[in-house]
């Protein structure tokens, strides 16, 4: 029989984007509810785990945080393999990081093994409104263009962080064929989910605001 707190599934999420946009800070906020202004620039890849509950189902997340620096780019994409969700971060106060989202999408397309990987565009540092260089509308437009979800967040003030991760996970769970039930849950249950014969089509676009 199924234990009450059995894990429904384990998911692999990726955080990608230019250096310094706040990827590691977002992750730290989500997992430890903390903010560290002295957070070191990431070398290679790092990761954290967290278990969350969505619709009474426990889901274990392994979140891979990648270095945004150019010189690490030959290394990090290898870890995209098997990722079911990706968070693409840009810095709302830095136009350049927004303009490069396209490159990251291409990279994701090239290296991710799941073609229906769920993507969320996150405009971070929205607490710094005075130096904002990218409007929310532009973010929404870009997300729509590439069928991504979208949210603005601040790792510093918490705004949008929890929501970004949860919505992403929920969307993954709703995508058949993208994930597999953990083996202990599968026993005795008819494997209705995760049967990958349908191609999830349509528009993934969704605004979480």
């Amino acid at each position: 029989m199924e234990q009450p707190d059995a894990i429904l599934t384990s998911l692999k999420l990726l955080i990608i984007g230019e250096s310094g946009v706040g990827k590691s800070s977002l992750l730290l906020r989500f997992t430890d509810d903390a903010f560290d202004p002295e957070q070191a620039a990431t070398i290679g890849v790092d990761f954290k785990v967290k278990t969350i509950t969505i619709n009474q189902d426990k889901i274990k997340l392994a979140i891979w945080d990648t270095a945004g620096q150019e010189r690490f780019r030959t290394l990090t994409p290898s870890y995209y393999r098997g990722g079911q969700g990706a968070i693409l971060v840009y810095d709302v106060t830095n136009r350049d990081t927004f303009d490069r989202v396209d490159n990251w999408l291409t990279e994701l397309e090239t290296y991710s093994t799941n073609h229906d990987i769920v993507k969320m565009l996150v405009g971070n540092k929205c607490d710094m409104d005075e130096t904002r260089a990218v409007s929310k509308d532009e973010g929404i437009k870009l997300a729509r263009k590439h069928q991504m979800m979208f949210i603005e967040s601040s790792a510093k003030t918490k705004e949008g962080v929890q929501c970004a991760f949860e919505e992403l996970v929920e969307k993954i769970i709703q995508t058949p064929g993208l994930w597999e039930m953990t083996s202990d849950r599968k026993r005795g249950i008819h494997v209705a989910q995760g049967e990958g014969s349908t191609v999830p089509g349509g528009c993934n676009y969704c605004s979480v605001i």
């Binding site: 990431t42 070398i43 290679g44 890849v45 790092d46 010189r71 690490f72």
Partner: peptide
């Protein structure tokens, strides 16, 4: 530790 392990190329 992870950072250390991967810092060879850095």
């Amino acid at each position: 530790l992870r950072a250390k392990m991967q810092s060879a190329s850095l």
